[in-house]
């Protein structure tokens, strides 16, 4: 089995750099209270300190409420990354369970489950989320994670089902049965280890996707609610004056692009590493 350490060794050079960048972002986000120069919600001078361009005092400038954008971006990283990670966990659990059941059961159950999935896949995710989230005026972050997770498992369950189907046809599974292996043994030793790689790839790319989604939703004003900071709602705060308050969309936007790019590089490299047999 490919252990995490072996997995790292198999990654390309670019992916290792990407992983280091991601780790740096995650560490900064985790230690936000120690790293951030200001309280992200503090409004020291709503008149005098609002809409300040980047300076030595405020490297990323301030927003229309005189809050320090750098501090908000750092705290925002916390939320954006956490939402991406947790929502993907939710989708992963649902997707793997649904796909594995369909693939393993086969026949009528499989056909029915796949038709349901076809119907779900036909609904645009962003539109569905807007429709759901717009029903709340103040949505808790937990609920946001849940909804993002609940709408993100369709594609993954397809992948898992396909993989399970392919694996049950594989001769090494037949061979394990011929050796007298129990169902549990086949599941644990032969099926699951071979599912982990495609799941890991899908999960990595899934986190990136959820981060973009969250930023999009918060930008529309239906994601993370104020005064909590997320990359999306920082951009939202400056959205009516993008040309003048350029720092408000540039810095969180750049960070989002950087994070998503790094995640994609890691995901692609993982795929290459697993496909190389």
């Amino acid at each position: 089995m490919l252990t995490p350490i072996r997995g790292f060794a198999a990654l390309s050079g670019a992916a290792r750099v990407a992983l280091a960048v991601l780790a740096a972002i995650a560490i900064v986000a985790a230690f936000a209270p120690l790293v951030a120069p200001y309280d992200p919600a503090a409004q020291p001078d709503i008149v005098g300190a609002k809409n300040l361009p980047p300076s030595a005092q405020h490297p990323f400038g301030t927003d229309p409420y005189s809050r320090d954008v750098l501090s908000r971006v750092i705290y925002g990283a916390r939320l954006s990354l956490a939402i991406g990670f947790l929502a993907t966990m939710v989708s992963l659990t649902l997707g793997v369970a649904y796909g594995a059941v369909a693939g393993y059961a086969g026949g009528f159950v499989d056909a029915l489950m796949m038709r349901i999935l076809d119907a779900l896949l036909a609904i645009p995710r962003l539109l569905l989320l807007i429709a759901i989230l717009a029903a709340w005026t103040r949505l808790s972050v937990g609920a946001l994670v849940l909804f993002l997770g609940l709408t993100g498992w369709f594609g993954l369950s397809r992948i898992v089902r396909g993989q399970v189907l392919a694996l049950t046809e594989a001769e090494f599974i037949t061979s394990a049965r011929a050796l007298g292996a129990s169902r549990r043994r086949i599941l644990a030793r032969h099926l699951l280890p071979n599912l982990i790689s495609p799941i890991a790839v899908a999960a990595t790319l899934g986190v990136a996707h959820v981060i973009v989604l969250e930023v999009g939703l918060s930008y529309l004003g239906i994601g993370v609610a104020q005064p909590e900071a997320s990359w999306g709602n920082i951009i939202h705060d400056g959205s009516d004056q993008v040309a003048t308050l350029w720092w408000m969309s540039l810095f969180p936007g750049l960070l989002m692009v950087l994070t998503v790019m790094m995640l994609n590089i890691v995901g692609e490299s993982l795929r290459d590493a697993y496909d190389r047999r």
Binding site: M1, L2, F172, T174, S175, G180, R189, P193, N194
Partner: peptide, 20 residues
């Protein structure tokens, strides 16, 4: 009884678990 009857497969690629 499977201890006494075994099988060797055609496809040398798919007959071995790549993760073992």
């Amino acid at each position: 009884i499977r201890r006494e009857m075994q099988i060797i497969f055609q496809d040398p690629v798919s007959s071995l678990n790549p993760r073992m």
